[in-house]
């Protein structure tokens, strides 16, 4: 019994230490955004890897999600003769939740694992030690560029996913349930308008749907970097770091999504709430 309690105690201490290290890593990575030297070229490379490299998977995810959403919804809406609301349903679902969350999960699987594997390999082959011995802060050189790339590229990828998802729904609406395209697209726009505007110009759903990916991008970059930088034990350790990065990033994205939604309902309340 005593051994069991001691094991729980050790696990909790390590977990608390890990959380602390994670936030310290994030704090230092953010602090270095404005510190010289600037690694602009590294930021561009990471934007290419995290952003441009993720476009194919985002296009496929967005397209099929929009199509499936339209297909499933059309069955239920059809029972009430309400197919004309298909555009509203697909538009709101994609922009509020599915676009940001699915994009983040897909990029987490691709980029978080890639970051963990790359930095983990550098850690176990002493490349990060070498970097430190030559007077470079590895967080400034390796983590900050990935953080900047994550928080800038995720919103852009989300816009792509939203757009292609709505187009996927349009394809189903026009070719499967014979809903005129203009009615579907009017429905999409009405769903944006119904959610209200921020600063009188930007649809609320659109703004909230783009604020979330900024946080998700940070989670993807920091989680991959954290597990990569703390990898130990050779190639096996790198493999474990990669798996943990994807699992942890995915859970954090889903959990954070709930709290962000709650927060945005307070900060940017929709009309009538």
């Amino acid at each position: 019994m005593g051994r069991f309690v001691a094991a729980i105690d050790t696990w909790m201490r390590n977990a608390a230490l890990g959380v602390q290290e994670y936030f310290v890593l994030g704090q230092r990575a953010v602090r270095f955004v404005a510190a010289r030297p600037f690694y602009g070229a590294d930021v561009l490379v990471q934007m290419d890897r995290i952003g441009v490299g993720s476009i194919p998977i985002i296009l496929l995810t967005g397209l099929f999600t929009g199509m499936v959403l339209a297909l499933q919804s059309s069955v239920e809406l059809g029972r009430f003769g309400a197919e004309i609301y298909l555009g509203s349903l697909v538009g709101a679902s994609m922009v509020r939740e599915l676009g940001p969350v699915l994009s983040a999960l897909m990029v987490a699987g691709r980029a978080s694992s890639g970051i963990a594997a790359e930095l983990g390999s550098m850690r176990v082959t002493e490349q990060i030690d070498a970097m430190e011995t030559m007077g470079t802060d590895p967080i400034k050189k390796l983590v900050t560029p990935r953080l900047l790339a994550g928080i800038t590229m995720l919103p852009l990828l989300t816009i792509v996913a939203d757009a292609i998802g709505i187009i996927g729904g349009l394809v189903i609406a026009v070719f499967r349930i014979d809903l005129p395209a203009d009615i579907y697209l009017r429905g999409v726009w009405q769903s944006f308008a119904a959610s209200g505007y921020v600063l009188g110009v930007f649809p609320r759903d659109f703004v909230s749907g783009l604020l979330k990916p900024v946080v998700f991008g940070a989670i993807i970059a920091l989680t991959g970097a954290y597990y990569g930088l703390t990898a130990t034990g050779g190639t096996e350790g790198v493999g474990m770091a990669t798996t943990r990065a994807v699992v942890t990033a995915s859970i954090l994205i889903l959990g954070t999504d709930y709290f962000l939604t709650q927060l945005l309902l307070v900060v940017l309340p929709p009309p009538g709430l």
Partner: peptide
């Protein structure tokens, strides 16, 4: 970091940056 700038270290397995060329590795510091 400032102290380390006065010290060069040769690592057991060289620890060269594998994404950089030899020129970029030597030019790094």
């Amino acid at each position: 970091l400032e102290v380390r700038k006065h010290i060069g270290m040769v690592f057991q397995y060289a620890a060269l940056f594998d994404s950089l060329t030899v020129y970029e590795n030597v030019a790094y510091p």
